[in-house]
Nucleic acid binder design. Sequence first.
DNA 1: AACTTTTGGTTAAACGTTTAACTAAAACTA
DNA 2: TAGTTTTAGTTAAACGTTTAACCAAAAGTT
Lengths: 362, 362
Amino acid sequence: MIQLFNTVYLLKRLSKYIKKINIKKKTTIKDIANVLNISAAAVSKALNDDSRISKKTKKAVKQVAKNLNYQPNHLASALRKGKSNLVGVIVPRTNSNFFSSVIQNIEQVLNKEGYNIIITQSNESYKKECDNIDTLLFTQVDGIIASMANETTNLEYYEKVKAKGIPLILFDRGENDLNVDYIGINDYDSSHVIVEHLVNQGRKRIAHIGGYKRTRIFNNRIRGYIDALKKHNLPLDNELLIESSLTTEDGKEKMAQLLKLKNRPDAVYVASDYAALGALQVLNEHQIKIPEDIALVGFGDEPFTAMVTPTISSINQHSAEIGKQAALTFLSYTKKKTIEQTLNKIILDAELIVRESSNIIN
Amino acid sequence: MIQLFNTVYLLKRLSKYIKKINIKKKTTIKDIANVLNISAAAVSKALNDDSRISKKTKKAVKQVAKNLNYQPNHLASALRKGKSNLVGVIVPRTNSNFFSSVIQNIEQVLNKEGYNIIITQSNESYKKECDNIDTLLFTQVDGIIASMANETTNLEYYEKVKAKGIPLILFDRGENDLNVDYIGINDYDSSHVIVEHLVNQGRKRIAHIGGYKRTRIFNNRIRGYIDALKKHNLPLDNELLIESSLTTEDGKEKMAQLLKLKNRPDAVYVASDYAALGALQVLNEHQIKIPEDIALVGFGDEPFTAMVTPTISSINQHSAEIGKQAALTFLSYTKKKTIEQTLNKIILDAELIVRESSNIIN
DNA sequence: AACTTTTGGTTAAACGTTTAACTAAAACTA
DNA sequence: TAGTTTTAGTTAAACGTTTAACCAAAAGTT
């Protein structure tokens, strides 16, 4: 018995055992226990570095675990512990640089703490978003980090998440009424920064192709735009303020609409880079000089804004920071025993990146 | 007893029960069983539409489940059934249109069959890719669909997956040596199509900024390029064939290198759109006329190729089809009892999208 | 030496399902 | 009517961990 953990002896037992279990596929904690003639509980504790297990045993357990190619069964431990160490992420889509960067940073922070993430896409559809939530709840995620679809106005499904006591963190597209944590940039101020910049460039008729008013962030950008005009004593012209779905296609359409005006704008602030790209294409087609005839500013700092001709000025939304903060906010709940969420906002200052499309003086 | 499932009676039992369980958080199958005075097993069967349960009972069970807001515990059923209904996806990154489209289509097909996916990114790093594999195995995924990182040459980790009997399906970036299923486009032929197109446009000195030879797909593109030159009786000039990491940055560098040649090429075929974009920027900076002085063709049909000036000709990789086929291939294994994977390739024909950057005659 | 504390475990139950094996009652059969 | 089949369940074990409660032996204390 004294020589039980002696290497030579151990190897013998091991090889015997390996033959025996060769038929079944996966090594479990019990297999390790059998090899070492100790209880499964001891193995579990050894693997989790429990203080009640001797160093010698821990070492032996880990050695055998390695030799048997042991892979812990996450499902079993998750079931027993009542937590899955999985966090659900819902985004409208992953193929925008903003969202993919947020996701990357969420992952980075959470992986360090032993959490993994499940990414789902809503494609801006309310129905898909509801399905995603069901999927995530079904998978027993320990938390959900989400940016809401454009379509979403009914918050019932998100209330369901809250009701289950699962931490919910929203970013970018949020909703105050849910009274949960939110991380985003200061949309209202961003509009001010943009208008101010355009005024400084000598612009007098600034149009805004904005998002749907019902989405809070776009509403804030619109409010910011209106108030900033006021601040600079520019009159608000209703035909210069247009609501849009903000796709590239719709950006084209709305820009064409602006060009048809008798009194054209000399600058256009578009609430999304994708729509700004559409606007740019229309302007180029009409051989309108950018920024001399019409200056253009987008929103989101997508990489392509620096690729197109001319390059498009845009607002950097600090995607990395948003991702990190969202993950940290989730982690803060894992340390608490009772989950009592309240409206808790982290608002980052956005930053205007001036590029060719709005750089007139200089 | 006869009136046990009578609605009024049921509601009474229900409300009594709800009060009782109000303290504990989640409804289980046992709670439903208690309300109806039947066994948990019967509830499980009823929910899974087992033939041995009467219609009446099934209806009652589902009703109570709904009222108690029952959410099945995936971990428990996965543990018992020995399958998680989760499929892991590994991609170099999600913020490329190709990968995000593949993912979207994988998801679509698998969701219909009750599977969910876990997306992980390797960021082209071998170490991260190994971590991803461990993560996925740990989460007990039922299969892995992957596109390998640029760095990956050691296949040990993937062998581990195979050894565990977990179906492994590779796409785009694959490796014959693994002897598993692979879905991709015909890279060798694509090079032929591109060279032929450029020859038809009157080009005589065609350069190729290719990927690393060790990555199979890039090697195939290089081989295709060389053989196509031969076929059209064009001499192979070694200074026109450059290996690159294919990032935008490296595309710039390699294009600059080509411009320094005494005898410049009159066409450049770049093995990735991202690198082609870099090349385009350098050409624009040098005020070289595209396509008149130098024609340019990329690879991947990323959306930005249609956004930049001039628009870039590129190869459509059929991302949607690749995603669907990958998912279907995985599903085919779920119907088999023994997993015996062999090298099994699905090769799709790629398609050249001609845009301004290579459209000379016309 | 008699007690107490510490060390290093063991035992058994639990997490929430599923499922093989069993069974009582009802319905059919000859 | 006795035997067989069908229906509609029940019981109990199992999936692989974790953990509360327990305990024997060794070490420390007075």
